[in-house]
């Protein structure tokens, strides 16, 4: 990954359009560029899956999109407004549209508040003037599968899966347009994951949601996403239509990720050498070059631009691979 450039963007009439976003953090070891020049767009009603391993910047990218924290540079167009330009109060007023659920269902819920208070929080902030009466919140609780008779309980009285349902209800109570799901099933029991994935699928239709779905689990991302963006060390490696990208991964990193899916039957020889470089001191050129089986001199010096690999399939690699990965 490596890649920079805005070539994969599909026009300027989409719901979300992020251009050249850079996110930096100050750490005791120096400044870390967690997201380097990332551009992507999401059409209304679409689900964009963001995959990558820890430290690739996938969560940071999504959070920076909603300005938590704001990116250092770049623009985030949402519904014809640049979220990085508008005032703090204007941004706060836009928040209802852009909601998020988190990986850790326990950390997501305030242990001292009741389920009802948690779900009602958004309405409490903005008032019931709009569509959200308490009766509709009760309906929403039923929709996510939490019996409203338990509204006065606190989070620790529920299981992880139920806490995730409560989080989802809280996020939907403001009738958002966009839902960011950050590893929403990674912390759940295997037998419960499908319940939550199916619930998200139902709610996406019922509430006409546009989704960003962040996960390290390729099989899950493949199942839910229309488009997929693969990230490595703060940059985008490959982005495109989910079917095209998984059937014909062009970036050596995507290939390695696919090959590593346990028991999936994906048969590829791609194997990563060495360790993930420190984000404090990312490699020059293509950031993946230190571990790439196809590395050449140009990779070490020049950051690859995106090239088109299919109708909606872009790869940022000097040596894109065309051997399809065999999925047994």
């Amino acid at each position: 990954m490596v890649g920079v450039g805005t070539a994969p963007l599909r026009g300027d009439d989409l719901l979300i359009r992020v251009e050249n976003m850079v996110v930096e953090f100050n750490t005791s070891g120096g400044t870390v560029q967690a997201v380097s020049d990332v551009s992507f767009d999401v059409a209304e009603g679409e689900t964009l899956g963001i995959v990558g391993e820890s430290g690739c910047g996938k969560s940071t990218t999504a959070k920076a999109m909603i300005q938590l924290p704001p990116p250092k540079s770049g623009s985030v167009m949402y519904a014809d407004r640049d979220l990085t330009e508008i005032s703090k109060e204007e941004l706060r007023r836009s928040r209802a549209d852009l909601q998020m659920i988190f990986q850790d269902p326990i950390s997501s819920l305030n242990p001292r508040r009741t389920v009802w208070d948690i779900i009602r929080e958004g309405v409490d902030i903005w008032g019931t003037a709009g569509v959200w009466s308490d009766a509709r919140l009760v309906e929403l609780m039923e929709q996510v599968g939490i019996d409203p008779q338990y509204r006065d309980r606190k989070a620790y009285q529920f299981s992880g899966g139920q806490c995730q349902r409560i989080s989802i209800a809280r996020a939907l109570a403001l009738d958002p347009k966009v839902l960011i799901s950050d590893e929403p099933v990674s912390a759940l029991d295997v037998s419960v994951q499908a319940q939550i994935l199916n619930l998200l699928d139902d709610l996406k239709t019922q509430h006409a949601l546009t989704m960003l779905f962040i996960s390290h689990d390729l099989a899950v991302v493949r199942n839910v996403s229309d488009r997929v963006m693969v990230m490595y060390l703060g940059r985008v490696a490959e982005v495109g239509d989910a079917d095209a990208l998984f059937a014909n991964p062009a970036h050596p990193y995507t290939q390695a990720l696919l090959a590593a899916v346990p028991g999936s039957g994906v048969n590829a020889s791609a194997r990563l050498e060495g360790e993930l470089p420190s984000p404090l001191d990312p490699p020059e050129g293509c950031r993946f070059h230190t571990r790439c089986p196809h590395v050449t001199e140009v990779c070490k010096t020049t950051v690859p631009e995106f090239t088109q690999h299919g109708p909606d399939h872009w790869v940022a690699c000097h040596h894109p691979q065309s051997t399809p990965v065999e999925i047994r």
Binding site: I66, L68, R92, R93, R95, A96, L98, Q99, M100, F102, D104, S107, S108, L109, N110, R113, I118, E121, G122, I125, W126, S167, R170, A171, L174
Partner: peptide, 22 residues
């Protein structure tokens, strides 16, 4: 650091509300 504080901010809660309620 907990996600519920982040969630409150995403819902549009002001700092005073986060401090007092969360």
């Amino acid at each position: 650091e907990r996600d519920f504080v982040m969630a409150a901010r995403i819902l549009g809660a002001k700092d005073s509300r986060i401090v007092l309620r969360e």
